[in-house]
Amino acid sequence: MKLAVKNELCSGCRACELICSLSQRGENNPHLAALNIVPHFPVPGIYEIKICDQCGDCAEVCPFEAIHEENGVYTINEDECTGCGICLDACPNDVLTMPDDYTIPIKCTNCGDCVLICPREAIYDADAASREEAV
């Protein structure tokens, strides 16, 4: 699973944010999502989908080496993370966040629920897309 986006298809409904917060954190609250829809209105009138593309910049700056890569997915080890927040600034897409009462950051786990729920197919699995092309 490799998350990818087509901004021009996004209608800004934010179902992706809501399912992310609900299925991963058990909270019905899109502000606790590990992805973000940024509207650019009234001009030029487009939504920008900010996702974690597992670039690993967060792992690189983590002073406690608490973020580990496995099968292309970076995961925060909750026991090793001190909540210092240094990784937040390193995220190029601003989708690593630490809300007030959180002790470790919210990070995308690559679960794929956003791909499943997106009604416009604006977030998609680039691996699956390339597999389809190969077939």
């Binding site: 021009e8 800004g12 409904c13 934010r14 209105f41 009138g45 487009i46 416009r120």
Partner: peptide
Amino acid sequence: VRDKGCFCCPIPCGKY
């Protein structure tokens, strides 16, 4: 130029 949906709408009737 764009489909513009309300919160969690799968069938955006808003057309920008």
